[in-house]
Structure formats: structure tokens, C-alpha cells
């Protein structure tokens, strides 16, 4: 694989970011930038919310009205990170992002 192969991977990654779902467009870049693991966040949310509907509802509320009290991250996290700004996404986009988040990191169906 030479320069051609590398170019192809970059093109595919780029196109994925542009043409990906709401989650890839609105959540992944920021988390990547802030170096906050989406997996870690998901597992923390699971510890608090347990069920799919409950978790999505809880996260939706947090994203719209972020605060330390409603965050699933511990106090340790806020020593290095500040609280995020309220989401400006529409309800439809937010729901789509949360659906994708659940599907990508869920535990159900991934245990052996």
C-alpha cells in the first residue's frame, strides 16, 4: 500500500465525518477534542440510569441543561474539565445522536 492507499483511507474517514450521523457530526469531534472517552461516559451513564429509555432521557436533559449535579462524571473529572455549554441541537438531532450512541456502546447483545 503506497500513497494511494493512505489517501483512500483519509478520504473515507473524511467522508464519514461529513456524511456520518448526528452523533458523529455533533458529539465525536468535541469529545475527541476534549479527550473525554465516549466509552467511559457511556459506562458511567449506565451505572446511573440502567435502562435504555431512562438513560436517553437522562442524557437528553443533561445535554440541554448541563450541570455538575446532573452529570454522570465524578468530581475528579471536573478538576480538569469545565461543564459543557447547553446543546443547541434540535430535539430530532439530539434523539438521533443518543440513539446512535446507545447502539454503538450498549452492553445488551455484547456479552458472551
Amino acid at each position: 500500500m503506497g500513497m494511494k492507499g493512505i489517501s483512500l483511507v483519509l478520504i473515507l474517514l473524511g467522508s464519514n465525518l461529513v456524511s456520518g450521523g448526528s452523533f458523529d457530526r455533533n458529539c465525536v469531534p468535541c469529545h475527541r477534542h476534549e479527550k473525554v472517552s465516549l466509552r467511559k461516559t457511556f459506562m458511567n451513564a449506565l451505572l446511573v440510569y440502567s435502562g435504555e429509555k431512562n438513560m436517553k432521557a437522562g442524557l437528553r436533559y443533561f445535554l440541554k441543561h448541563p450541570s455538575r449535579d446532573t452529570s454522570v462524571m465524578g468530581d475528579e473529572f471536573f478538576r480538569t474539565h469545565s461543564i459543557k455549554r447547553p446543546s443547541e441541537l434540535s430535539d430530532a438531532e439530539l434523539d438521533e445522536a443518543l440513539d446512535e450512541y446507545w447502539e454503538r456502546y450498549k452492553v445488551i447483545g455484547n456479552l458472551e
Binding site: G51, E52, N54
Partner: peptide, 22 residues
């Protein structure tokens, strides 16, 4: 990913919405 097993008993986990996880 391997769910913990024990020869003395069997087990199952369910979420808050009564959905079986494993």
C-alpha cells in the same frame, strides 16, 4: 466480554426497564 459463571448457581441480570441484559 465474558459473563461471569459459577458451578454452584446460574444467574441473570435485568435493567431498570425489566429488559434482560444477559
Amino acid at each position: 466480554r465474558t459473563y461471569p459463571r459459577d458451578s454452584r448457581f446460574r444467574s441473570a441480570i435485568y435493567d431498570l426497564e425489566y429488559r434482560q441484559i444477559f
